[in-house]
Structures are given as C-alpha cells and as structure tokens.
C-alpha cells in the first residue's frame, strides 16, 4: 500500500505516505531531543519532591524542603527589617533634633525619603512637593498647621486633616455664599477686601469704599477664624490671607469661590499605612526641602 522511498537530497528513508505532494522522512527522534526529555523530566520530578506539588484530595504534598511562599516572604521581610534596624532603631528612639544633628541619619532620610514621598504623597503634593491648586506647597515655608517643624509635619501626617481619624485635624472654611450666610454681593465685597490685602495696588481711589465695606464684613464674619488682621492661625489650620501663598488661588475669582462654596481640604491620615519610622523619615525629608526658610 505504501512504498518507502529514499529522499535524494539526504539519502534518508521516507515513511511512504504522501499528502498532496508532502512526504515525511522516517528519521528517528534525534538523540539530543531524548537527552533533553530526560533532563527536563529529572528536574521536574526532583522539584516535585522538594516543593509543594501534587494535590491529594483534601491536602497536598508539602515537599521535602517544607517551603511555602508565604513563610518565605515573611522571612525575607523580617531579614530586611533586621538589616534596616541599624538605622530604624536610631530614628525610632531619637528626637527630631537629635536626628537632624546626626549626619549619617540625615543621609538615610535623604536616601529613603524620595521613594516614600513619591509613592505616597507625590500624587497630591507633586513629586517635588511643590504642591498645586488645592494641595499645599510643602517647600514654600508657608504652613497651615504649626511652624513647619518636623514634629508638626509628622503630627499632620499621623492624624491627617479632615479625616475620620479620632484625633484628626479639622480645617473647614464655611460656605458663606452657598449656605446663605452672606448675600452674593457681600461675598464679592469681602473677597475684594481680602484680595486687597495681598494686592496693595488694588486699593485705588475708586475701590476704597467697597474695600472698607468688605473690611467690616470681614470683621463680623471672618476674623473669628482668620484673625482681625487676617494673619491666620497655625494652631487651627486657618490660612494667612495677607501673603502670597494661596492654597486655592489668590485671584479675585478664586477667592470669591472660596468664600462662596467654602473649603475643607482632605489630607489622609498615614497612621495605619505608614510606620512611625516611615512617618518620621518623611517629616524630616519634607522639612529638609527648605520649607522652614520662606
């Protein structure tokens, strides 16, 4: 039925079958392939003995080495923590001043800070910490809360601002316009006053009267929080309205928006997500960005 032939090019036998002109040679499986089969199978079988491998209904073979990925990673993490302990324990137990005085610890801060900041804070404050609309610049030396000391920054990070943390900092600017506490004309008037504080050139002859009106509106409604001179209060996170630093923007329109709709920025708490050491490192890192020297 089938006739084997000899392939003229190689002198090898065909199997004698043909499909629309295609033939096959009857060569044996090359030895190299067989060796390859043996090698890979030996490896696999060995691996099955050493590692967790085959299911047995309600359990599985655990392997002679007793390895499991979870135990392995726990060990790796502990080992890492142990190695890191050379500086983490120093940071944990030292005060901020002590760390700042210690060059080698500060070198660690500068080494690890950027990654921690990039993975946790950069999305809001910018990867160079220079902030953007609605998110404060952490390098400009103007602080809502506290004096920009590493302690204050660390505390802000721990409890967050306007969060559900039991000790959270709260900073809420009421929505004077939207909630009907001020008529919209008054909102504009007080905003013009606030605008004039940081823009002296705005106080022209023709504006003076309305600015004066705004000043009295401010005294009635705003000074309780922002202070009579609108200098803010770093104890309550109330911004200074006289300087060049603005969280939500210092243009007249933006100020009107702040007064009309109110503001309450949300800074998450890092109490659970970051360890005390990580928070300390971050606070020192932020502090080192020059934010204390406006």
């Amino acid at each position: 039925m089938s006739k084997t032939e000899v392939d003229p090019a190689t002198g090898e036998q065909t199997t004698g079958h043909e499909w629309n002109g295609i033939k096959e040679l009857d060569n044996p499986v090359p030895r190299g392939v067989l060796i390859f089969v043996v090698v890979t199978h030996v490896f696999a079988i060995l691996w099955w003995f050493l590692m967790p491998a085959f299911p047995l209904g309600w359990t599985y073979t655990r392997g002679l080495l007793g390895i499991d990925q979870r135990a392995t990673v726990e060990q790796a993490i502990s080992a890492n923590q142990a190695e890191r302990a050379s500086w983490t324990s120093a940071i944990e137990t030292s005060s901020f001043d002590q760390i700042q005085a210690d060059e080698s610890l500060m070198a660690v801060v500068k080494d690890t800070g950027p990654q921690l900041f990039g993975d946790n804070c950069g999305a809001c404050h910018g990867f160079d910490a220079s902030g953007r609309s609605n998110y404060p610049d952490l390098t400009d030396g103007d602080w809502l809360w506290g004096d920009g000391s590493a302690e204050a920054v660390a505390e802000t990070m721990r409890v967050g601002i306007n969060t559900s943390h039991p000790e959270s900092r709260f900073a809420q600017m009421p929505a004077f316009g939207r909630d009907g506490m001020l008529a919209s004309a008054d909102v504009r008037t007080v905003a013009r006053y606030v605008y004039s504080l940081s823009h002296p050139e705005f106080s022209t002859e023709e504006n003076l009267e309305s600015i004066a009106q705004g000043e009295s509106l401010f005294a009635e409604n705003c000074s309780g929080c922002h202070g009579a001179a609108a200098l803010g209060d770093a104890e309550t996170g109330t911004p200074n309205l006289t300087d060049a630093y603005w969280l939500y923007g210092g243009e007249l329109d933006q100020i009107i928006e702040s007064v009309h709709g109110g503001r309450a920025g949300h800074m998450p708490t890092w109490d659970e997500r970051l360890t005390p050491v990580e928070r300390k490192v971050l606070a020192l890192y932020v502090h080192s960005l020059g934010g204390t020297t406006p």
């Binding site: 392939v33 390859f36 890979t40 590692m51 085959f54 979870r70």
Partner: peptide, 28 residues
C-alpha cells in the same frame, strides 16, 4: 507568587519547563 496555592505554581513551572522539549522539537 499570588494567592494561588504554592503547589499549583510548582506544577505550572515544572510543566512549562518540560514543555520546552516538544516546542523546540516542532521548531527543529
């Protein structure tokens, strides 16, 4: 390395290695 039990991963890895033989045999 995921939440899939380690034993299944072992099987996936070892059979993938053995799989190279028939794959290369086809290419060869």
């Amino acid at each position: 390395y995921t939440a899939l039990p380690h034993w299944v991963q072992t099987l996936g890895m070892s059979f993938s290695v053995m799989l190279l033989v028939p794959s290369w045999a086809s290419a060869g």
